[in-house]
Amino acid sequence: MENNTQIQSKVRRIKEQIFLIAVFLCAVIAVIPLFSVIGYVFVKGIGAIDFNFFTQLPAPVGETGGGMGNAVVGTFILVVLSCLLGLPIGIFGGIWLAQFGGGKRGFMIRYAADVLSSIPSIVIGIFAYVLIVTTMKRFSAIAGGFALGIIMIPTVTRTTEEMIKMIPRSLYEAGLALGIPEWRVTLSIVFRTAWNGVFTGIMLSVSRIMGETAPLLFTAFNSMYWNFSIDQPMSSMTVQIYNYAISPFAEWHAKAWAGSLTLVALVLGITLLVRKFSKRVRYG
């Protein structure tokens, strides 16, 4: 009997060791891809990055030099366009949900936002294509911005709502007690207080749409030239990286790595900054 429990105790200890080692290994393995991706992007991309990379147009096959200046500019224009659609709907929608969204209508809108956030971005791209590209009869930055804007909406709405709800009700009531109308209190006291958190949400969703490729493939399409008019096809970093990556040319592959390095630096930079910033908001 005693022997039996001793064996049992040994078995337990071995199981425990295996468990501890296994979960530790899981944690280590989980971060290996991050290091590999960042490492390769850096090593392979850094060589092709120079000043020209950000200022010049893509060079045709066979020619050396060239860059993706137009794609960098294009990405920023697309982000601005998507903000024009995504921010008003997201922010005002979030304010409505926080202030008046307690009932059935609020539930429905919240649910719609959840569904929207789970729709694959390529499907959103088709939506923008049918709605805008077929109407305008050409690919355009507007269509791309529209698709990205839709992708932004759910995140911005939910963050705005949650951040406003975190503001103590006493603050709101204090404003009302001063005789300020509800809407002024909501905008200039409650929303202003919540702004830091809302901004965090906006930046995270901007960094996400910067990395989106699929919804741009048949909306903003691509362009090998400088283009500042939003009713024309527009190049973006992601689509450019994609085109370079699947091409058979080694010099284009190098450009794809360099573009990836730029993009990853931007996106991870924003994410890390915002994380730090939002921590300060929470504890400071």
């Binding site: 971060v31 891809p33 960094s207 699929a214 996106v267």
Partner: peptide, 16 residues
Amino acid sequence: MVELLAAIPSVVYGLW
């Protein structure tokens, strides 16, 4: 670091 895995754009994963 695991969270950052989610921030890397899809097209970069494709290239990698």
